[in-house]
Each structure stands twice: as C-alpha cells, then as structure tokens.
C-alpha cells in the first residue's frame, strides 16, 4: 500500500469502527453484524468466511466478544497497527460516554427527542442485522450440508429456547467440528 492509501485506510478503519461502536447500544451481537456489513460487504477488506472465522475465535476467548472481534479483525486486516486502531475505536465511545454520563445522563436519557432518535437508530441496526443474518443463512442453506445446518438449528435452540450456557454450546460445536468437519467441503 502507498503511504497515502495506507493513511486513508487507517482513518477509514478508525472512523467506521468508532461510529459503529458509538451508534450501537448493547455490544456483542449488535456490533458484530454491523462490523461485518462494513468490513466485508461494503469495503471488502475481509472475506465472508474469514470474518466468521474471526468471530468464532473471538467467541472462544475470555473478554468481551465485540472487543475480541474488533481486535482480531484489525489484526487480520492490517497487523498490529490495525489491531490498535480497531481496539481504540471500539473502546473510546463507551469510555467517553460513561465518563460524561455523570454530568448529562438525566438530559440524554430523559429527553424525549433524544430517546426517539436512539430508538430509530436501534431500528436501523436491527434492519442491518436482519440483512446480515439472512445472507449468512441463505449461504449456509445453499451448501445443503447436514452438519452445519444441524449446528445452526441446535445452537439456536440451545441458546434461545433452552437457555444453556454459551460456553458449553461452543465447546460442543468445537468438538463436533474437530472430529467430523475437517473435510474441505465444510470450509
């Protein structure tokens, strides 16, 4: 990459990660589909599968999954400098907001119009998550493989219906994959 290009890449990475982190409420699986929509679908900095592999790794490690995901995606896209840029951009909005909240929390949350705006943004985030989820599910369904589809259905049921601890679900899927899904057709 030329120096100019590199500079604009880091600025773009910082700006988009910072804004996504600042505009999304709740962390975790709200922020991850948005990062995926930005890095994969809009900028093509990562491939679909690569991004999902990164999120899988982020999910297995301790810490906050949104932070883990931005660390490892940044690392994958542009090494240490990319990692620090993405990490800083993810952490800065909550750091600033919570520090300021003592002064203006009542205004920010009590104000009806601010509340309407926040609610609208949540709706926008929901639409993006629906789009990302739909595309990923369609892609998996097209492969017509039994095990991945069974994992999708099983994970969904275990997490949202049976309320099992996510770590057990992850462990189970990792073992399943380790023993039965090393073949290239599952890549």
């Amino acid at each position: 990459m030329a120096a100019e290009q590199q500079k604009s890449f880091y600025w773009e990475l910082f700006k988009s990660t910072f804004l996504i982190s600042a505009f999304t409420v709740g962390g975790g699986y709200v922020i991850i589909p948005l990062l995926k929509a930005k890095f994969v679908d809009q900028y093509h900095w990562l491939e679909d599968k690569e991004a999902l592999d990164m999120v899988s790794l982020a999910q297995t490690a301790p810490g906050v999954v949104a932070v883990n995901a931005s660390i490892i995606m940044g690392l994958r896209m542009a090494g240490w400098a990319g990692m620090l840029t993405a990490l800083f951009a993810t952490v800065l909005p909550p750091l600033v907001t919570i520090s300021l909240i003592a002064y203006c929390y009542d205004f920010a949350v009590g104000n009806t119009y601010v509340h309407y705006c926040l609610e609208g943004m949540q709706c926008g985030a929901t639409a993006i998550i629906i789009d990302v989820a739909y595309n990923l599910l369609r892609k998996e369904a097209k492969k017509k493989l039994f095990l991945p589809l069974a994992i999708i259905a099983g994970t969904f049921a275990a997490n949202y219906i049976l309320d099992l601890n996510i770590m057990y679900i992850i462990l189970f899927n990792a073992l399943l994959g380790c023993f039965f899904m090393q073949g290239t057709r599952y890549n």
Binding site: G28, Y29, V30, I32, P33, K49, L52, D53, V55, S56, L57, Q59, T60, T126, I129, I130, V132, A133, Y134, L136, L137, E140, L147, P148, L149, I151, I152, A153, G154, T155, F156, N159, Y160, I169, I170, N173, A174, L175, L176, G177, C178, F180, M181, Q182, Y186, N187
Partner: peptide, 16 residues
C-alpha cells in the same frame, strides 16, 4: 472453526 462458524451464524440469526 468449521464447527463454530454455523454457531456464529445461529447467534447472529437469533440476535436478528
């Protein structure tokens, strides 16, 4: 990773 990827898809679908 091949085992975990569909799980991530399920979690994103659930979040939606």
């Amino acid at each position: 990773l091949n085992g975990l990827r569909p799980a991530v898809v399920a979690l994103i679908g659930g979040a939606a």
